[in-house]
Design a protein around this nucleic acid. Structure first.
Length: 269
DNA sequence: TAGGCCATCTGGTCCT
DNA sequence: AGGACCAGATGGCCTA
């Protein structure tokens, strides 16, 4: 006997997922990540080591169908990620309808709504019959709709988490190619951590270099200039730095001129 | 076929 | 009470 798992039949048929399955049919990255100089530090907690061992399968392989939600899912691209509500960005679009996350009781056609027609189609749900029974026997006196609401919330939460991971994948440098398998979750997190460390090191190195240049070229009185033919268009920070250097140079020149004039007049007097 | 990865359900805990 | 978060359990998919 299965309780209210019919919503979990969601997995049986899916319509859309963030990344299509075809995007990841190719073999796993094959060192694309590890090849970079900021690859893996330390091992994976709970797994053996690095991405080479984590032959990530895709999350997309099994189409999650969000129960009765699946139709909306296929039609509304931005269903997930209510993070914007907490100022964390992301997108959350409900086609002008109320926000699911903020209106837990009234999603227009959320998976929260038990679908009487979807029962008995999920092998997973069937396999979970024991736990469902336990739920019913134990504290599980929750109503069916309550349980479905909880399940739906948890599903959304995990989808939001996955969306955030996707965004993280999009900003960390690894081969973003359809022929390259998507990074696993753990690989994404570890890679991001290493990338941050690498950026921090690069920043420190840059600061030291700037300090060195200021200590040498500046002391000698020679302005730091960009090499001929060097286009600063793509380097706003460097352009700003050079601009500041030139302004500082001009200021020093004025100051020196003032000192010379004043000193000369004073000495003569 | 084993192992890795994942989605989902579920119950517990904590917070508002 | 309701929601968020977490961890365990379960089963599917994929690759070596």
């Amino acid at each position: 006997m299965k309780s209210y798992d019919c919503d979990s039949s969601s997995e049986s048929e899916d319509t859309s997922h963030a990344i299509s399955r075809s995007m990841i049919q190719a073999p796993w990255m094959r060192g694309n990540v590890v090849g970079s100089n900021w690859g893996w530090q330390g091992g994976l907690p709970g797994s053996s080591s690095g991405p080479s061992s984590s032959t990530a399968a895709l999350p997309d392989h099994q189409p999650p169908n969000y129960g009765t939600f699946s139709q909306e899912e296929s039609q509304v691209p931005g269903r997930r990620t209510p993070l914007g509500a907490v100022g964390l960005g992301g997108f959350y679009f409900q086609g002008g309808q109320q926000n699911i996350t903020t209106a837990p009781h009234g999603p227009p056609s959320d998976e929260n709504i038990p679908d009487p027609a979807c029962s008995g189609q999920n092998s997973r749900a069937e396999s979970r019959g024991a736990s469902s029974n336990a739920n019913i026997k134990g504290k599980g006196r929750q109503g069916k709709s309550v349980r479905l609401n909880i399940n739906a919330r948890e599903r959304r939460r995990m989808h939001d988490l996955n969306d955030a991971l996707d965004e993280l994948r999009s900003v960390i440098p690894y081969a973003h190619s359809p022929s390259v398998r998507k990074l696993s979750k753990i690989a994404t997190l570890l890679l991001a951590k290493n990338y941050i460390l690498m950026q921090a090191n690069a920043l420190e190195e840059m600061k030291r270099l700037i300090a060195y240049l200021q200590g040498t070229g500046g002391a000698a009185g020679s302005a730091i200039v960009a090499p001929p033919g060097f286009d600063l268009q793509g380097f706003p920070a460097a352009a700003k730095f050079l601009q500041q250097q030139q302004a500082l140079q001009a200021e020093n020149a004025r100051h020196n001129d003032g000192n010379n004039e004043g000193g000369g007049s004073g000495s003569t007097m």
